[in-house]
Design a protein around this nucleic acid. Sequence first.
DNA 1: AATGAAACCTGACAGC
DNA 2: TGCTGTCAGGTTTCAT
Length: 275
Amino acid sequence: MPELPEVETVANGVNARVRGQRIVRVWTSGKPQTFKSAEEEIAEALTGATIERVRRVGKSIVFDLTRAKKRAPQFLVHLGMTGRLLVSQPDVPMPAHTHAVLTLADKREIRFVDPRRFGRLSIVSLKDKNSKGYTGPGKEPTTISADDFAELFRGRKLAIKAALLNQSILHGVGNIYADESLFRAGIRPRKAAGRLTRDELNRLHKALQHVLAKAIQLGGSSVSDYVDADGVRGFFQLEHKVYGRAGENCIVCRTPLKKIVVGGRTTVYCPHCQR
DNA sequence: AATGAAACCTGACAGC
DNA sequence: TGCTGTCAGGTTTCAT
């Protein structure tokens, strides 16, 4: 479900509702694959901790925690494909596939719900008191400069679409925003990343930042089941120009959009507009 | 280094 | 109504 704009929408929504709250109780489901850290470690790290702030790093939701006013290990939530993080009153029925519940001092609950169980919960301990904590696997796409962006792809032979999806290069971009930004920049998804001209890289940098900013502004894309912390859908799906439109005509030149596989993912592009 | 395929899971949807 | 097959916003692992 979630790429950078969706994760950011969820993180900001949860932050606005729970920052400053203390976690008084933790329940976990016992489904082992959901927990990247041991469930006991998660329960121990969270119980009694105060939520300082909730924010997005890459595609992860990071909880900055304190204990007795001192910084404590961080709690990371990765939503996978179908994960949701909801803030609910205790009398709201527990959804199916709920894998963790953090009960707050005011009785509300932070619930992690994930039918497909590709999501992951983990604890990150801080190396020292100056540690920045979790910084993600790659570079941040929303703020990277055009020069640094261009540098990421120099000499790389893999397809530019695969490079955009590689979280250790840039983190946060997924299948929707890779396709949408390549369309906007007029670049073939299969073109080798290292063979893009500086002009193409500049266009891609601009397109990607535009698409991400616009999607964040609209609360993300709701393709099937994505919702924010209040259960509200996003609106960026109405702006998709290629994603999910294979076989339809290009909105610019009316050429039928083509569907191929790049980096193991369905990819839609316009064979006329993207060279 | 880098491809590609498969695996991890459930639910939605199309077609019969 | 119900069965089967296909597909899905992600990541990791294993073979080539």
